[in-house]
Design a binder for these strands. Structure first.
Length: 214
DNA sequence: GCGAAGATTGGCT
DNA sequence: GCCAATCTTCGCC
């Protein structure tokens, strides 16, 4: 039975004030919600990575504040969005107190099938009017990578610096994922900080991205 | 002012 | 497995 309406409860600001790696772990299982024209789209977070400026050379803010990474220095619980490889937008959740920089990269989502029109809207966003692609995309492919999920959720630089207490983009509460179901590895696609085990994903979840630890 | 590199993806060999 | 696509930012000349 698919409910016609789902009420989402936003994670409180205090959730994001936990240490970065605690937030990265605790975000697993939570629901990313995006309000756009035509309704809400949502997905369950199944893969994250932590980045901490103070000790982590892979973090964009390791060498201090710049124009690009400015929102990472803002209050915990805001969005940090940047362009990757000239092609993809990456969505991060800012952590650490204002003035210090840290963030959690959202790497993969499991689309909610119980939300009306959700898969249809995600497919449309991913395919971007390409009818052939729209038909080909499986549910797994809709948001199983950091660049794919921003495309599916219509997320770009316009949302950089937005508070996650806003209605257009927020994260909703959901039952905690059991510690035995969380897998910890090193991060994907980086050249610095390769040894740090700061990637988290839900064990055996088919929506986790295909990126291998570097 | 300019060049190199990047927290990726998908298609082809 | 390898590689191109594409563009913004940063760091250095």
């Amino acid at each position: 039975m698919k409910p016609r309406l789902i009420t989402f409860k936003k994670l409180s600001p205090s959730f994001y004030r936990q240490p970065t790696l605690d937030v990265a772990k605790a975000l697993l299982g939570k629901i990313l919600v995006r309000s756009i024209e035509g309704g809400q789209i949502a997905g369950r977070i199944v893969e994250t990575e932590g980045y901490i400026a103070a000790t982590d050379a892979a973090c964009h803010a390791y060498r201090g504040e710049t124009a690009r990474n400015r929102s990472m220095f803002g209050p915990a619980g805001t969005a940090y969005i940047y362009r990757s490889y000239g092609i993809h937008w990456m969505l991060n959740i800012v952590t650490e107190p204002e003035g210090e920089a840290g963030a959690v990269l959202l790497r993969a989502l499991e689309p909610l099938e119980t939300l009306e029109q959700n898969l249809h809207t995600l497919r449309r966003n991913r395919a971007n009017a390409n009818r052939a692609l729209e038909k080909k995309l499986t549910v797994v492919q809709l948001a199983n990578g950091p660049g794919n999920l921003t495309k599916a959720f219509a997320i770009d630089r316009r949302l950089d610096g937005v508070s996650l207490q806003s209605d257009e983009l927020f994260i909703a509460t959901a039952p905690e994922v059991s510690a035995t179901d969380v897998v910890v590895t090193t991060r994907v696609g980086i050249t610095q900080g390769r040894a740090l085990p700061w990637r988290y994903f839900i064990k055996a979840n088919p929506f986790v991205s295909k990126g291998r630890p570097s």
